[in-house]
Design a binder for these strands. Structure first.
Length: 523
RNA sequence: GCCCCCAUAGUCUAGCGGCCCAGGACGUCACCCUUUCAAGGUGAAGAUCGCGGGUUCGAAUCCCGCUGGGGGUACCA
């Protein structure tokens, strides 16, 4: 546990007594990306951690941005809830939770956006545009041909009111565009990077309301953040280029903009945005691949944030205690699967209790048919699972490694293995066979659940046979586990238990006899 | 092309003008422990602080330029 730091109020926090409200606003167009997961984490840590530590109310809300009817993916919203819940984040307001400033699903707020678009039009900050997609495409191509920067040519910006009315009357489809100031500049204050200055002339008139009546991100996000009393916007770096538009929108509405903080991008190992091509990139994939949420959280927290450059292990409580938005770095970070695996291994081996680990292993082992899926702490299968977990936890990098590594403990029959494995390198098959027979006899009157007794007996046997202990232990290991790598031999024997030890030794001896005959006849 | 962001070892990072000829972690390598493999322990290699100019008694730290990487450039978010 890390001691809480003496907290001096950061400059980006509101005056004492005023609340901090942040939101995570994913669109339900697929599974939740780790980049989104990290943004949600930082949102949550800021609201529930930093803000509350400093004596302010901190609220974390979830808003579903489903304004693109063409990209909606069925079940995606539920998937987002599941991913965030699994990750360990809880939200105070959201579509499923309700709250004072809902609804929290944008498709239920369309009237609101339309009203606000009209307000902008009436104030001269926006206008109806009747340009067809075909015309827009043509303009774009012409601009490219002339090597001009692409962008809307403001064709409809100064249509006279009569034309607009006539077009609307005749049912011509239209969008609402923002009337960006044509000169001057817009200053965006980013909490992480400082001030960014844009020349207004380089920003075109973006669409606010689409022809299907739904808003674009720009309008919906500004209207909702204001109406939901959001104080700080945490979002990905990819939003920096549209930040000036948003700032202009706040100004056009006469609203005070929230504090903006753009989180550094998460890059793929080869460069570029992290995607499916680079292995897992969605929260649910990490879950399915056997990563535990505590480890993922620890790893993700350190991608872009650090406490002191020294401390590496942070529990969820540590993070709530120590995270500060001000220490988030502006530079993009490359996702390193190897380091994530290290964290996961560390949590499995050193942080989780054995009982906890055993329980988390159940879904993975059940899928492989190794334990009943209903296995719980009081299930008859649990004690063996627990013992198996204790034995193998130091070589589990992910929960998904368990079926392969623990099969020999959880099943009575061993998977078929190559008889040659029984014979150590540079050892004689016949001598090995005799040694195993001797082991069989020696173990007949030894209680294998007594590790010390078993070890004493087998070491003595090795001496009697004139073998090095390791030479004798390897054939036993293979006979009992079916593989050349296993936990310590004596603890393995203990957990496998007397009956299976006996049966597996007999099976190994039989296998070696057959193998010997075959190699003789092959000569 | 245009706009914008970023820049300390392969990777994540500490550093916010002298404590740094640069600290921690992952990865890599070696050794130790040892019945195998892990885990663990110890140690090593690895960064002309992207390059070039300034500012300063003094720069990884401040300023400018360049280069490189990345993002944006949709009636997607």
């Amino acid at each position: 546990m890390i001691a809480p730091a003496a907290e001096t109020a950061a400059s980006y926090l509101p005056p004492a007594g005023a609340p901090v409200r942040v939101r995570f606003a994913p669109s339900p167009t697929g599974s939740l990306h780790v980049g989104g997961g990290r943004t949600a984490l930082f949102d949550w840590l800021f609201a529930h951690g930093e803000a509350r530590r400093s004596g302010r109310d901190g609220a974390f809300l979830l808003r579903i941005e489903d304004t693109d009817q063409n990209r909606l993916v069925e079940g995606a919203t539920q998937g987002i809830y599941d991913a965030l819940s699994w990750f360990g984040l809880t939200w105070d307001e959201g579509p499923d939770k309700g709250g004072p400033l809902g609804p929290y699903t944008q498709s239920e707020r369309t009237a609101l956006y339309q009203e606000h678009a009209e307000t902008l039009i009436s104030r001269g900050h926006a206008y109806r545009c009747f340009c067809t997609p075909e015309r827009l495409e043509r303009v774009r191509q012409e601009q490219q041909a002339r090597k001009e920067p692409p962008g809307y040519d403001r064709h409809c910006r100064d249509l006279d009111p009569a034309t607009v009315a006539a077009n609307r009357e005749s049912g011509l489809p239209s969008v609402v565009r923002f009337a960006m100031p044509r000169d001057g500049e817009t200053r965006v204050h980013d909490l992480i990077r400082g001030e960014i200055v844009y020349r207004n002339a380089t920003i075109d008139d973006r669409v606010l309301l689409k022809s299907d009546g739904f808003p674009t991100y720009h309008l919906a996000n500004v209207v909702d953040d204001h109406l939901m009393a959001i104080t700080h916007i945490l979002r990905g770096d990819e939003w920096i280029p549209t930040a000036p538009l948003h700032i202009r929108l706040y100004a056009a509405f006469g609203w005070e903009p929230p504090i903006l903080a753009h989180m550094p991008l998460i890059l793929a190992p080869g460069g570029g945005k992290l995607s499916k091509r680079h292995g897992a990139s969605a929260m649910e994939e990490f879950r399915a691949n056997g990563f535990i949420p505590e480890a993922l959280m620890n790893y993700l927290a350190l991608l872009g944030w650090s406490l002191d450059g020294e401390t590496e292990i942070f529990s969820k409580d540590d993070l709530l205690e120590r995270f500060t938005l001000g220490r988030v770095s502006p530079s993009p970070a490359t996702f390193d699967h190897a380091k994530l695996r290290w964290f996961n291994q560390h949590y499995i081996n050193h942080v989780l209790s054995v009982g906890d680990l055993a329980l988390r292993l159940v879904p993975f082992l059940a899928d492989a048919g190794l334990v009943p899926s209903e296995t719980g702490p009081n299930h008859p299968a649990f004690p063996l699972l627990r013992d198996a977990s204790a034995l193998l936890k130091d070589r589990l990098e992910t929960l998904a490694d368990a079926p392969d590594l623990m099969g020999f403990l959880l099943r009575d029959e061993l998977d078929p293995y190559d008889a040659a494995l029984l014979v150590p390198k540079k050892a004689d098959p016949l001598a090995t066979l005799e040694a195993l027979v001797a082991v069989q006899e020696a173990l007949a009157d030894v209680d294998v659940t007594d590790e010390a007794a078993t070890e004493a007996r087998l070491r003595a046997l090795a001496e009697t046979l004139g073998m090095k202990a390791g030479q004798l232990f390897m054939p036993i290991r293979v006979a009992i586990t079916g593989r050349t790598q296993s936990p310590g031999l004596f603890e393995t024997l203990r957990v496998v238990g007397p009956d299976r030890v006996r049966a597996r030794l007999a099976a190994a001896i039989a296998l070696l006899r057959r193998h010997g005959d075959e190699s003789l006849s092959a000569d």
